[in-house]
């Protein structure tokens, strides 16, 4: 089914789409039908810049376990960077 489970967050960074690099301003995280992954539902993340239209999108479609592993890994890497004093001052 269409779960309509989605949450959006404002982000800053860059993503590489079909037309090259562009600034990413929003991430939409959903657990719903994927377009490509061979699953009925997937954890989908769309990195976009809404100002540039629908085509400014970098997408991933993950299994639930892969998404959990990714989230934990992101947090672990950031924690290590923070311990090392590497995080940018603005953060």
């Amino acid at each position: 089914m269409c779960t309509m489970i989605v949450s959006q967050v404002a982000i800053e960074g860059s993503g590489k789409g079909t037309a090259g690099w562009f600034p990413v301003r929003r991430a939409a995280v959903s657990y719903d039908h994927p377009f490509h992954a061979p699953l009925e539902h997937a954890l989908n993340i769309d990195f976009t810049d809404p100002a540039r239209g629908p085509g400014a999108r970098v997408a991933v479609e993950l299994t639930a376990q892969a998404a959990r592993d990714l989230a934990a890994t992101i947090l672990a890497v950031l924690a290590e960077a923070e311990r090392g004093g590497f995080l940018e001052a603005a953060e």
Partner: peptide, 19 residues
């Protein structure tokens, strides 16, 4: 109304908005 692009990119935009 979500704009134009590939069907997937447009649908992803609508999905982000909750349909």
């Amino acid at each position: 109304r979500a704009g134009h692009g590939t069907p997937e990119d447009v649908a992803a935009q609508v999905r982000a908005a909750g349909g």
